[in-house]
């Protein structure tokens, strides 16, 4: 059987590329905008978590079988595959694991003011938990400069949640406005 060399010299791949202009000028292209509204229930674990956010505290679930603490809480341990055992309440202080500067929004539009976001590993009993998995949240950061992210100064920094005013809290993740560095 003849060998069939697959490179630019021997193969012309099928397909008809279009420029953006050509695509939008094609006859008969169909414009369609889906209409779909959802109302998500928040479940056994997260409904309690959100209720506690409204009160200004972070609720987690602990598995007494393996000792893992889950934030956001789960009613089952992913590893033991047994029900988690109890609710525990965290201060919300923690350590920054990673952080980035976003210059674009959800639909890739340029933002006027860049946002800083990152992951916080939350303390248990005022201590940083060790190991591959940990209780943590992904959120916005305040009082952190672009330089702090780029130089890496922010990674490993100690942070705490900045809560919205009590009357402004709605029982959702944005009841925490952001995480901010703990001074000193």
């Amino acid at each position: 059987m003849a060998r069939r060399i697959y490179d630019k010299e021997h193969v012309k791949a099928p397909g008809t590329p279009l420029s953006s202009k050509e695509m939008y000028q094609l006859p008969g292209t169909i414009e369609y905008t889906p209409v779909a509204k959802y109302r998500f229930t928040t479940g056994q674990a997260l409904s309690k978590f959100l209720e506690e956010l409204k009160r200004g505290r972070i609720a987690g679930r602990k598995c007494n079988n393996c000792g893992r603490v889950y934030v956001p809480p789960r009613m089952y341990c992913e590893f033991c595959y047994k029900p988690t055992s109890e609710w525990i309440y965290l201060e919300g202080t923690g350590t920054v694991v990673t952080a980035v500067v976003s210059y674009i929004g959800t639909a890739r539009e340029r933002l006027e003011k860049p946002e800083i976001i990152g992951i916080v590993k939350l303390d248990i009993d005022n201590k940083e938990p060790q190991g591959y998995d940990f209780p943590g949240l992904f959120h916005r950061f305040c009082n952190v400069s672009e330089d702090d992210v780029k130089t890496g100064k922010i990674i490993g920094a100690r942070v705490r949640p900045r809560w919205k005013l009590e009357e402004e809290r709605k029982g959702d993740i944005t009841d925490i406005e952001c995480f901010e560095p703990i001074e000193g």
Partner: peptide, 25 residues
């Protein structure tokens, strides 16, 4: 996740950037 992630208005590039930053660190 509709409850704990979507309200923050995430962009897919965020998670890659966060992971890349962590790898660099």
């Amino acid at each position: 996740d509709p409850v704990v992630e979507r309200p923050l208005g995430p962009n897919l590039l965020w998670i890659f950037a966060l992971e890349m930053r962590r790898y660099m660190h």
